[in-house]
């Protein structure tokens, strides 16, 4: 086991602050403390080589977890052991072994080319020259940024910059890499390239922990999904299980020769009745089997066209957040 987390908790203390002018003046003199329980006891284990997605709405505790696991924040309670280290103790030794890309916070230096920033990390992580050259060459090729790394960072597009952030974070060949919203704001092509890169690195044995709002990231990358809400883990299993979590559902759209019946039966939920001859609906297979449904509709209305789809992952997640 490369990561072992046990009953992690975190409580934040903050102060109430008004919005209006009057309240703002008042807040200069009196402040009310507010306690927020960001994590209420989180436990999980991650094996070497896993690619785990962390999901959750804003303020669910994702970032807090990530900050604790990267050694930036001390938890209020609980244990964590990563590669034999407790992240928030012995920070320097620990972070030398991990990599991190925080989508909103750049490690690159704005006014100079990424390659100069790479050399800075080479010194900071004491990467031997040969290993540095080899890793750099490999990653530059994988991401297709040979030309870009010599241009000033400020001239690069967001996608190009993000590719360079990945190189920056992985030059020292970390065993575990933490990613926070790595594809935020990127176009489809850049997203694909970065996902490909992550998968390739994962095949080489790197463990990834990924937090994101982009469910496409999860669908493309993660074998395992941990969903956090209100500071607690509400789901921790494979992506397929996640899809099935709220019952095996299918999305069906159907058009018929004769008017459709009411279809008020357990397991059938009409989501959109377009006309008497056309409708979209959700079918819960545990309550009503697909072949029975088709037979029923065909008998009553004669099917002209019918399509069956899996529900969008978004829908599943929304169900979990409630």
């Amino acid at each position: 086991m490369i990561i072992k987390v046990e009953n992690l908790t975190k409580v934040f203390k903050s102060y109430q602050r008004g919005n209006t002018f009057g309240e703002a003046v008042k807040s200069l003199f009196v402040r009310k403390p507010i306690y927020v329980h960001a994590l209420k006891g989180i436990s999980f284990n991650i094996e070497e080589g896993e690619l785990v997605g962390f999901l959750g709405p804003n303020g669910a505790g994702k970032s807090t977890t990530l900050k604790i696991l990267t050694g930036i924040m001390h938890p209020s309670g609980g244990k964590a052991e990563i590669m034999g280290y407790t992240p928030w103790k012995d920070r320097k030794k620990y972070v030398a072994k991990i990599g991190a890309v925080f989508g909103q916070k750049s490690q690159l230096l704005w006014d100079i080319p990424p390659v100069d920033a790479f050399y800075l990390n080479k010194a900071i992580y004491s990467i031997p020259e040969r290993s540095f050259k080899k890793t750099l060459h490999k990653m530059v090729e994988l991401l297709g940024v040979e030309e870009l790394i010599k241009k000033p960072t400020r001239q690069l597009s967001l996608g190009e910059r993000m590719k360079c952030e990945f190189i920056m974070a992985m030059l020292h060949k970390p065993k575990i890499v933490f990613l926070d919203e790595p594809t935020i704001g990127l176009d489809v092509i850049a997203k694909d390239k970065i996902r490909e890169f992550i998968l390739e690195m994962n095949r080489n044995g790197v463990t990834f922990i990924l937090t994101t709002h982009d469910l496409d990231d999860i669908a493309h990358l993660a074998q395992r999904v941990i969903v956090v809400n209100h500071g607690e883990i509400v789901f921790d299993d494979s992506l397929t299980t996640l899809r099935n979590y709220l019952g095996v559902k299918k999305i069906i759209s159907v058009s018929t020769m004769r008017p459709l019946p009411e279809l008020r039966l357990p397991g059938i939920k009409i989501t959109n009745r377009i006309s008497d001859y056309k409708a979209e609906l959700e079918l819960d297979l545990s309550k009503y089997e697909l072949n029975k449904f088709i037979a029923l509709v065909n008998k009553s209305s004669t099917i002209m066209d019918l399509s069956v789809q899996d529900p969008e992952i978004e829908e599943v997640i929304k169900g979990l957040y409630h």
Binding site: R17, T20, F21, A24, V25, S27, L28
Partner: peptide
């Protein structure tokens, strides 16, 4: 002026 003042007031002390 009002917006500037009230947003500035939010940072106590400073």
């Amino acid at each position: 002026v009002k917006v500037a003042l009230s947003s500035r007031m939010a940072y106590r002390g400073d």
